[in-house]
Design a protein around this nucleic acid. Structure first.
Ligand SMILES: [Zn+2]
Ligand SMILES: [Zn+2]
Ligand SMILES: [Zn+2]
Ligand SMILES: [Zn+2]
Lengths: 139, 139
DNA sequence: ACTATTTCGCAACTTTGTTGCAAAAAAATT
DNA sequence: AATTTTTTTGCAACAAAGTTGCGAAATAGT
């Protein structure tokens, strides 16, 4: 695991630091997406809030993670698949947020539909967020 | 106009106050959606920030306006159509945010597609936000 | 016009996010 | 392996966004 993490950082021309390794590891261990607060709390060692903000931003810039728009307006982040690279995200999959456990999933196999826009409107990006009950919360 | 505004407030069992009338009027005058900041700045008279927060929340609760999830995680609000009522929103239309002028539109005639979820996932609500260039910003 | 109820505005506070800078850590060089 | 250069970190200080309690003011009901 440590190998993989280090490798990803190096591949992206990032200095391998403890905070980056730990935070990236958290993403690989987590099933769903992570919010800033999750990271701030979950880690055994405590990183400064500022470091977390900067690390997340760096990962987004490098195409390692992507942000997920949510209806409650809290930012969440999830790992990108291989196709993403610095400055060019290609995460056009649907996201799912569970109303019960609040877990956020990337539904990699549900792709975003293309919609016909009214005259004059030119679509460049479409974000789809579905909410409901997730796999784990079905009674 | 004043008649209409007052009528809407009364229909929803809300006291008719100056802030509520003015803020509701702003929504009726505006082409797109409004953010908290828009309201705070735009009005000639100045309402307290807290009053604006509370008024917006009240309107959402009553089904007069709905919130729009945005990828930059800033809350925006737009008028609901008639079908919405207290506690029950039915705004299943697509939203459009212009990359250039930042205006947010409700595309009332573009309805949200129903997507097939993976096994175990039960969709209850789907939010679609499209971004690109709007009608007014086409060169 | 008077009373009861609701809403408003202020102050104080919390949460979230940003910026500058010196110290520490990592990478590059010798 | 030691030194220099570069990058990253943590702190402090700040700014922006949102919340809560409460007395004063406005609205609604009689
Ligand atoms: Zn769940
Ligand atoms: Zn995703
Ligand atoms: Zn525009
Ligand atoms: Zn809308």
């Amino acid at each position: 695991m440590q190998e993989l993490i280090t490798d990803i950082l190096k591949r992206n021309q990032l200095s391998v630091t403890e905070s980056r390794r730990k935070i990236l590891e958290l993403f690989h261990q987590s099933k769903g997406a992570l919010a800033h607060a999750d990271i701030e709390q979950s880690s055994a060692e405590h990183f400064d809030r500022v470091t977390i903000y900067r690390t997340l931003q760096t990962f987004v810039d490098k195409g390692i993670i992507h942000t997920i728009p949510t209806s409650d307006n809290s930012v969440r982040y999830a790992l990108c698949k291989d196709e993403c690279s610095a400055g060019h995200h290609h995460d056009n999959h649907v996201h799912f947020i569970c109303d019960q456990c609040d877990t956020t999933y990337c539904l990699d196999h549900v792709s975003v539909p293309s919609l016909k826009m009214p005259n004059g409107f030119e679509a460049k990006q479409t974000d789809v967020v579905v909410s409901g009950i997730c796999k784990n919360c079905q009674s």
